[in-house]
């Protein structure tokens, strides 16, 4: 252990029972080429500061629990090797969410928005006796990328529009909506488009594009949102045309 390398990292601490606002604390930890930030956080909790709060579960970029800001950039702690941060490392809770304690944020908004977009197959009346609901590789390819989301919330921490307006449905939720809108087995597009077209829907996006940059699963939410805008604009155009047609037919009747 004599040749163990050490590194001093800064971690944002906030205890709602004592602190008025978060503050940074320094911790010196041993590390090797294989150490990721999540290992370091667990080391601190086990050896230096047992009251450090952070979320984690799978340790392998699958569960999406351990999102934090590393030097101001949203990252998963399990996917952040310390060897890449030898010039300094500041860990803060995910941006744009209220801080509950230390590195734990309140994701209620995020979860509600995901539910609002109904990310599941709607209106499919098939029964098990009908056999498997087959899809061609081309049909799967249309939405496959968008189905890789692990709900980690990094895209919300990267989105300045969500930061400025927490009512904005945001990248991941709308992307999940898009994922099911593109699914050939689904019949619920009109239900989801109501939300997507709404005041805090897809038009809150100004294509900053940082969501796609930080996504650990390369989902490209910025692309999904721009495609939703195309859908939304086409729906609007269709509704105007339908209105005109209805007016014309009413006029003829009168």
């Amino acid at each position: 252990m004599a040749d163990t390398k050490t590194m001093t990292i800064k971690i944002s601490r906030y205890n709602p029972e004592k602190d008025g606002e978060p503050h940074l604390e320094l911790y010196t930890i041993p590390w090797s080429e294989k150490t990721v930030l999540l290992d370091a956080l667990q080391y601190i909790k086990d050896n230096l500061s047992p009251d450090l709060s952070f979320r984690s579960s799978c340790r392998m970029t699958i569960c999406g629990s351990c999102g934090v800001m590393i030097n101001g950039v949203p990252k998963l702690a399990c996917k952040a090797p310390l060897r890449e941060y030898q010039e300094g490392l500041t860990v803060e809770p995910l941006a744009n969410f209220p801080i509950e304690r230390d590195l734990v944020v309140d994701l209620t908004h995020f979860m509600e928005y995901i539910q609002a977009l109904k990310p599941y197959i709607l209106g499919n009346i098939r029964r098990p006796s009908d056999g498997p609901n087959k899809q061609t590789p081309e049909e799967i390819a249309k939405y496959h990328k968008y189905s890789m989301c692990i709900n980690c919330g990094l895209c919300y921490a990267a989105c300045p529009q969500f930061g400025l307006n927490p009512k904005f449905l945001g990248p991941a939720a709308i992307t999940l909506g898009r994922r099911y809108n593109l699914d050939s087995r689904d019949k619920g597009k009109s239900e989801r488009m109501e939300k997507i077209n709404s005041e805090n829907g897809v038009w809150g996006c100004t294509l900053v594009g940082y969501c796609s940059e930080v996504c650990p699963k390369h989902v490209d939410p910025a692309a999904a949102l721009q495609q939703c805008k195309v859908d939304s604009a086409l729906e609007f155009a269709a509704s105007v045309l339908n209105c005109k047609k209805k007016e014309a037919s009413h006029g003829n009747k009168a």
Binding site: P16, E17, E21, P22, N96, P98, I99, E100, D106
Partner: peptide
């Protein structure tokens, strides 16, 4: 005992 801390977004974000 909850007291969520909200970080304001300023114009220089």
């Amino acid at each position: 005992k909850r007291k969520p801390y909200i970080r304001e977004v300023n114009a220089g974000w």
